[in-house]
Design a protein around this nucleic acid. Sequence first.
DNA 1: GATTGTGTAAATGTATACATCAGAACCAAC
DNA 2: GTTGGTTCTGATGTATACATTTACACAATC
Lengths: 243, 243
Amino acid sequence: MSDEKGTSHTMHALTELRQRILSGELRGGERLLEVPLAKMLDISRTPVREAMSRLAEEGLLERARSGFVVRAFGEEDVVDAIELRGVLEGTAARLAAERGVDAKLLAAFANIVDGLDKCLGDMPSDIDFDGYSRLNAEFHAALAKLAGSKIIERELERVSKLPFASPSAFLPDKVDIANSRSSLTVAQAQHREILVAITNREGARAEALAREHARTARRDLEQALEKKRSTIGQVVNMALFAN
Amino acid sequence: MSDEKGTSHTMHALTELRQRILSGELRGGERLLEVPLAKMLDISRTPVREAMSRLAEEGLLERARSGFVVRAFGEEDVVDAIELRGVLEGTAARLAAERGVDAKLLAAFANIVDGLDKCLGDMPSDIDFDGYSRLNAEFHAALAKLAGSKIIERELERVSKLPFASPSAFLPDKVDIANSRSSLTVAQAQHREILVAITNREGARAEALAREHARTARRDLEQALEKKRSTIGQVVNMALFAN
DNA sequence: GATTGTGTAAATGTATACATCAGAACCAAC
DNA sequence: GTTGGTTCTGATGTATACATTTACACAATC
């Protein structure tokens, strides 16, 4: 039936549906009916239900009176999701500073920051975008773990899965090199100062820095929206498969 | 089969399982098998799966490699959940202050605070515990809505459902009147100042107050644990059906 | 003409048979 | 004794038939 090896029908449906939601093919507010979806994916209703249930856990679907609808994200929701990520990363940073971090974990964190430095060579043309993007994701994942709190880590992961709230959702475009370089340099300075603040046990500073760092994403969002607005009228659902 | 009217088998299973988890009858880390549960509840596997799926959404179960296990909450998790609630309520308060609140909504919020005052009469014996408890829950629900952000409200609701993280989980005992009175008085003073700060658009103050307010719950938790420790060795799972 | 009732169709809810997969136990060969 | 495979068991995964609920349309009645 499915030509993917090793993946169950549920996983197939999960992947497929998530992609269609994030790409905007299934639009916010739209009700998802089991039978048509099952037919579309050429499987039975059971794995479709299972997949929808998991997507509800991820926050991409909402349970309606009965059945599911695609969760609608407006511009203000994206802004709030980014704000919330900033708040949670700030809390992770603060708790890490206040409670102290295991030396090995902190060293690994410092390594990531060093690695990010190396991605920004001296020459603008040197920028290693892929390396930066990968290490940036690692930085945020490590920060989430730094407080040593399962609860914080889990909620942070949840929020980062919301469309456009991911730390890598709005990494600057490779095309606009000049602009990219300066924003990445600023962001990287923040990465380092977050590390310093946590190392020095400066909780309030670490929190404030992490929040401010998330604002970068908000600025980039607004910039992207401005660009899009000048071309199309449509706002959200610029196809995004991030994270 | 089920003698509840109007509730589906799924809802019955959901209620039943949630209760057994919160009461500690199903212990953290325990794997839940579909067949025995279905037999126990005298229904088929399908609604059991559905109920478990919803409990996973609530955060009471975790998906394992296959199937579900009861999520284990240690003492430190409860502390973190309360901390997180404080952070989120602080964010709701700050955003409400920064962005401004619709006049009607703010008036309703103020009404709740006034109502809470009335529950604490002049005489210690006057304390209306039930009224206070109800209005306290309303206060926190209203606060969550005050920022006008669906995202914040939703995440706050999620966190408050975690065991012991609810605002009403540790309301002081009616038995110890003298002690109760002073802690409720302090808590109510915080309620009022949160209202004042939001009204005056003092974002930072509103946030700090809401965080501090949540610390009350943490103190009460630690006190409760201290008491329990002196009697039993067991820590978490003092049967709680709150929220 | 509005409202209420009823029928019908289409959706989800449920049970269950069967498929598949993973882990444990066991046996054999080395 | 250990290691390797093999089988068996018990779990979830899947399809599907059937039950139940609901929403809508259309008609009858006030």
